[in-house]
């Protein structure tokens, strides 16, 4: 066992990279759930985003275009869910599960012929001056811009939900859609917009894995991150900053346990592999012991005639 092989700067830096796809997907789903919709299709939208982004980036040579395409791909797939649940009033749980299965299959189909290809590399946003700070510079300021985008997105979502009119209306719709309708708000329209936003975020998160973190395409490469994001939203009590904390905790322990495995720590690999899930859930369960509760209309279908 050689713990000195673990470089703390690299460890912390890769923590931020590991957490970013999870954070993006979780923030998107958080907005969807605050609007009262339970979309279990996060995994499917992520993997669809991953292959859409990958394919466009390879074909155009532009990773930025790839990211845009990933967000679009996720959003378009989520529209299918929106049509099923908001207009056809299908059951949200079943539709979400179907969306995941569909997304996995669709991505495998699109991904034929993209296996083993290397995508164009993504520029790092070496922030001048800040990145030269010893230790902190390496940890915080030498990442690609998506890492910062995810953090900024968390801040924006938090601010919008807490202080803006549109955030208030979104929360109201998630809390009591009948009352919101009675006050004249367009419940279905607001929910479809939220679902789209969630799809775009999930797609972006997926493309982060295929374009930046790994970077290559393999079937099923999101490996359950979408499900973790769903659990994270619940255990974060539907609060953006807590979701970010959870994502970083999860990312951190994932990276740490990989390092520990490499260093040959005398703990069975299985325990190390399960540790990120266990520790993240334990911490967030303890934190969610306060009074906060789920949006009251979560998962309930809305129809104007009732």
């Amino acid at each position: 066992m050689d713990l000195s092989a673990i470089n703390p700067t690299l460890l912390l830096a890769s923590l931020m990279v590991a957490a970013t796809p999870l954070l993006l997907a979780a923030i998107g789903e958080l907005v969807v759930e605050r609007a009262g919709v339970l979309n279990l299709g996060v995994e499917g939208m992520m993997i669809t985003g991953a292959i859409c982004g990958f394919a466009i980036a390879v074909n155009t040579g532009s990773p930025i275009l790839g990211l845009v395409a990933a967000a679009l791909g996720g959003a378009v797939l989520s529209l299918l869910f929106a049509a099923l649940t908001q207009y056809a009033l299908a059951n949200q749980v079943a539709s979400g599960l179907a969306l995941t299965l569909f997304g996995l299959g669709l991505s495998a189909l699109i991904g034929q012929g993209y296996q083993g290809i290397k995508p164009p590399s993504f520029p790092k946003a070496d922030i001048p001056l800040l990145s030269d700070i010893p230790f902190l510079g390496g940890v915080l300021f030498r990442h690609d811009f998506v890492v910062y985008l995810a953090i900024a997105l968390t801040a924006v979502v938090w601010w919008v939900l807490k202080y803006s009119r549109i955030g208030l209306v979104l929360r109201a719709v998630g809390e009591n859609h009948d009352a919101a309708h009675a006050l004249g708000y367009k419940v279905v329209r607001i929910r479809v917009a939220a679902i789209c936003f969630g799809g775009a975020c999930a797609g972006l998160g997926g493309a982060y894995i295929s374009l930046i973190r790994v970077p290559q395409w393999t079937e099923g490469m999101t490996a359950g991150i979408g499900w973790i994001a769903l659990a994270l939203v619940v255990f974060a009590s539907w609060k953006p900053w807590r979701a970010m904390l959870g994502a970083y905790l999860f990312g951190g322990i994932t990276v740490l346990q990989l390092n520990l495995q490499a260093a040959g720590v005398a703990i069975p690999v299985e325990y190390l592999a399960m540790s990120p899930y266990l520790i993240t859930i334990i911490v967030l369960v303890i934190m969610s012991a306060d009074k906060s509760r789920a949006p009251a209309a979560l998962g309930r279908s809305f129809h104007a005639s009732q």
Partner: peptide, 18 residues
Amino acid sequence: FQHFSLFDALDVAENIAL
């Protein structure tokens, strides 16, 4: 309204703003 069109999880001012 008869069945109050209020939002339990929001505060009074937010309910009124809506």
